[in-house]
Design a protein around this nucleic acid. Structure first.
Lengths: 200, 200
DNA sequence: TAAAAATATTGACTTAAAGTCATTGACTTT
DNA sequence: AAAGTCAATGACTTTAAGTCAATATTTTTA
């Protein structure tokens, strides 16, 4: 990597980091490129060499966040399907909690509107957690942990909607409850109830 | 009501209706006050006599939508708790489906950010469906339909998050599935599973 | 090593759209 | 019918996104 490329990466990183901080502080709607670049000590134009539109920086912040979740999912040990799903939920909410609510708010806003994603990104990427979950369930059927007649697509929908619903309610209540704690309760109460029928 | 008041109401209504149409067509982010007022055949200033900020009109659209759901909930017959909840979900999604996805997107955006609500509105109003659901469950405990030890708050959270999750996933998939159909399946699979434990 | 090419950075500028407000005139009250 | 009220107006101000020709610095080429 040349000196120039290194510098460029550094600049972009600096903008990304400061943007994340500002979104966390004041929400997506109050992210101001003039203020952002001033805080970074760069000119406004510099921002637009790295991001085509203002929104793109938000997209990248969220993408980074959820890329980390995906990575962690790869390390799943060979536990039972219920435990694996509980782990999935737990990790998901843990990651969400690590960042500010405003980042989660931005994420939800991005996710609900496929047209929001910048052109240079595969808009399906917003939805990779859906695929990830579907694969977990599919594999469980393959491994004969779940019955053959398990309605995988329906279960995926139900579980993913529960996950997003949890985030939504968490944002709605302005973080009045602990997602981690609540996830645990949720898994105990609901996940078992819903899967029991299909366990081999 | 004087002639003047009548005229004022008419104008506001016209703006609200056209705004809803425009949001449905192009999403919240593309609502333009200049275009909106031109389409309504009024001056830009007129908009601002009825709405303090641009976002307020969106808030009112959503509020009207969900006020209708609330109204319908009042007419609930004395069926079993499972049936009542199924009815609740069904009506909720039916109403959501009647409007455009972009309205639902706007609703979710409003709901996840309590600071988004205009000053002259009780921000808790965004959350009235949470209270509504909690009351349904509380009454069921009172009427001995549900056991005394039912974790009402937890169940409310779980069910409401499922509801919002469904809306989120519906928006995410760009209406790839029928909410009504899916609600039915969801109620069959999940609602019964989760409540069974607490039914008297 | 020096000239040429490439590209990150700059900030003044353009543009778009939100929001303001003094003025007007139709309706309402006295 | 005179005085008062208030919905409506649209030119104006303000804010902030996005552009781009010029500049500075690094890399490549000869």
């Amino acid at each position: 990597m040349t000196k120039r490329q290194e510098q460029a990466l550094k600049t972009k990183e600096k903008i990304l980091k400061e943007a994340a901080k500002m979104v966390a502080e004041n929400g997506v709607d109050n992210l101001n490129v003039d203020v952002l670049t001033e805080r970074c000590g760069v000119a406004k134009g510099t921002f637009y060499t790295y991001f085509k539109h203002k929104e793109d920086v938000i997209f990248e912040i969220c993408r980074d966040l959820f890329a980390q979740i995906e990575e962690r999912m790869q390390q799943m040990t060979n536990k039972s399907i219920v435990e694996r799903l509980a782990y999935y939920f737990d990790e998901f909410m843990k990651e969400v909690e690590r960042y500010d609510v405003n980042i989660t708010r931005a994420w939800i806003r991005g996710v609900i509107d496929p047209n929001n994603a910048p052109a240079n990104f595969d808009s399906k990427k917003w939805q990779y957690d859906v695929e990830m979950l579907e694969n977990i369930l599919k594999n469980a059927v393959k491994n004969k942990e779940l019955k053959k007649n398990t309605p995988v697509e329906l279960l995926t929908h139900i579980i993913i909607s529960q996950l997003y619903g949890m985030m939504t309610v968490w944002c709605m209540s302005d973080c009045e409850f602990e997602p981690k704690e609540w996830t645990k309760k949720f898994c105990d109460v609901q996940l078992k109830a819903i899967l029991e029928k299909y366990l081999v």
